[in-house]
Design a protein around this nucleic acid. Structure first.
Lengths: 145, 145
DNA sequence: TAAAAATACTCCATAGGTATTTTAT
DNA sequence: ATAAAATACCTATGGAGTATTTTTA
């Protein structure tokens, strides 16, 4: 099974008409019929009742439609997560700082501004020696959450 | 995006090695690299850090992996729902019966046996006139949940 | 220099198109 | 007689294979 099968199935389920669904999908009707048949065969389930002047969903089709929509929604979410993570709007930020850093003034403000800007980024702070800061050492952590 | 991309991505994420992942998938390494590249391009996100002796997941890749697994799990569920609905192990059963039916004895037993056999089928009972039973009329219903 | 991924190209399986037939109204 | 899906057949896009190059540890 491929997402194509689910996209095609949903189009037919919404139009209840192979010709119009094909048009909406930008393909012709025969390959759409074929893909739906292939899907039905793989599932071992009849998804539509075809009575030549009318196409309607079978019981299996109605239930499958809900699941198929959830799959596509989940795919959208997956793509969105990846894009936002790439843009640095999601994920984890680890910051090491030395005890001599002006913690009482600048760091809290910086954290606040950062969390305002990237609310989905998980912040992870740690006080450490300046040598470790320079070396990029960051084993344990204090989470700000 | 197609499910193929997700299946390939998960294989590479698990093996952290394109060659072995390709072998596990039953394809050769170059097309696997190509499909992963196509996926990364479509997402606009780098999923792996390639440093020639080592492949590792990027932050975006780690987050995407969780989502991708959920997609495939949802696809399995969708297929399962369709198959079980086709077998009559899922869905809805509507039964009309007349007031003269021996409700106190046979019907409750029949319901019990049915629900034992098909626990996922939603039962829907209604007392109606014998004429409506014969005509298959079934507008409102009493649900047995 | 060795191990692994990326390129370059070639091939073929199959998604998709066109033409036609079937079917039920 | 008509509208719509199914079937048959053909085409061509792109997924997959083989050979080779690039990269860096």
């Amino acid at each position: 099974m491929e997402l194509r099968h689910l996209r095609y199935f949903i189009a037919v389920a919404e139009e209840l008409h192979f010709g119009r669904a094909a048009q909406q999908l930008g393909i012709s009707q025969p390959p759409l019929s074929q893909q739906i048949q292939a899907l039905e065969q793989e599932l071992g389930a009849r998804l539509f009742e075809r009575t030549n002047r009318r196409v309607e969903l079978s019981e299996a089709g109605r239930l499958f439609l809900e699941e198929a929509r959830q799959v596509l929604a989940q795919v959208e979410k997956a793509a969105d997560v990846a894009r936002r993570a790439q843009l640095g709007e999601l994920g984890e930020m680890k910051i090491g700082f030395t005890s001599s850093a002006p913690f009482t003034s600048k760091i809290p403000k910086a954290i606040h501004a950062f969390r305002q800007r990237f609310p989905a980024v998980h912040l992870n702070l740690k006080e450490m020696s300046s040598r470790d800061v320079a070396a990029g050492v960051f084993d344990e952590s204090i989470e700000v959450g």
